[in-house]
Simulated assay, not measured.
Amino acid sequence: MTDAFAKHAAHLLKDIQDGPIRTGWHWLNYNFTPGTPEFVSVAHPTAMALAAGDAVMPGFAAEQVKRLESLGGTDRDMGHYRQIMSWYCEMLVIGHLASYQWPAEVTFAMEPVVGESEKNPEILIRLDDVGALGVEVKAPDLGRHQLNRKTNDWQLVGRVPADLADLDGGVTFPRDNPVKDFLISADAKFAGFRAADPAFRSVLVIVWDDFVNEPLTALMAPGSGLFTPNSFFQNNGKPVEFPNVDAALLVRHQHQVIEGLAGRKLGDGRQHLLDYGLPGQFPPPALVTNPFGQALPEEFLDSLHAVPAEKLSTAAEYNPSEIVMWFDTTPN
Rank of each mutant, 00 (worst) to 15 (best):
A49K: 00
S86G: 14
D15A: 07
S303Y: 08
L301K: 12
H253Q: 10
I16K: 00
F182A: 15
L147S: 13
V42Q: 01
N148E: 15
D328C: 03
Y318L: 10
V106C: 05
W102I: 06
W102F: 13
L124A: 05
P45I: 03
G260K: 06
T107P: 07
P308F: 04
H80G: 08
E63I: 00
M1C: 11
S231R: 05
M325I: 11
E241T: 15
A139L: 03
G277V: 02
G269R: 04
H26F: 03
F292R: 09
D166W: 07
Q271V: 09
R144W: 07
V240L: 04
L164M: 14
G280C: 12
V93W: 02
G35V: 07
V42K: 00
S303R: 11
W25Q: 04
Q256A: 15
R76A: 06
G72A: 02
T2K: 04
A49D: 00
Y100T: 10
P140S: 07
G280T: 05
K189R: 14
G79N: 15
I21F: 00
H272M: 02
L164P: 11
F292T: 04
R149K: 15
P222I: 06
D209A: 06
A306C: 09
A306D: 07
D197G: 02
F173A: 14
A286M: 06
G170C: 13
L304Y: 04
A4L: 12
G237E: 07
G19D: 13
N177W: 09
L133R: 02
T36M: 09
S202Y: 07
S185R: 06
G19R: 04
I125W: 01
K7L: 14
N235H: 12
P112T: 01
A262R: 15
P112F: 01
A62L: 03
R175S: 13
R194A: 12
L274D: 02
D210S: 08
G53S: 02
A196E: 14
D75F: 14
A162C: 08
K311I: 08
L13H: 00
N332D: 13
D128F: 12
F182T: 05
D181T: 12
A98M: 03
Q271C: 12
S41D: 09
N120P: 03
H44S: 04
A248P: 06
L50D: 00
V207H: 01
I84Q: 00
G73C: 11
V114H: 14
V240I: 11
A51E: 00
P34W: 10
I84K: 02
H145W: 15
G73F: 06
E90C: 00
V171Q: 09
P284T: 11
A286P: 15
T46K: 01
A165D: 14
F200C: 05
V157C: 08
Q155A: 12
Q234Y: 11
S41V: 05
S313W: 09
L92P: 07
F282G: 09
N213L: 07
F5Y: 13
N148H: 14
G170Y: 09
H255W: 10
S321A: 14
P34S: 08
P103T: 03
G269I: 05
V257F: 07
K138Y: 04
R175V: 10
A139F: 02
A262L: 11
E122G: 02
P140D: 01
G169K: 08
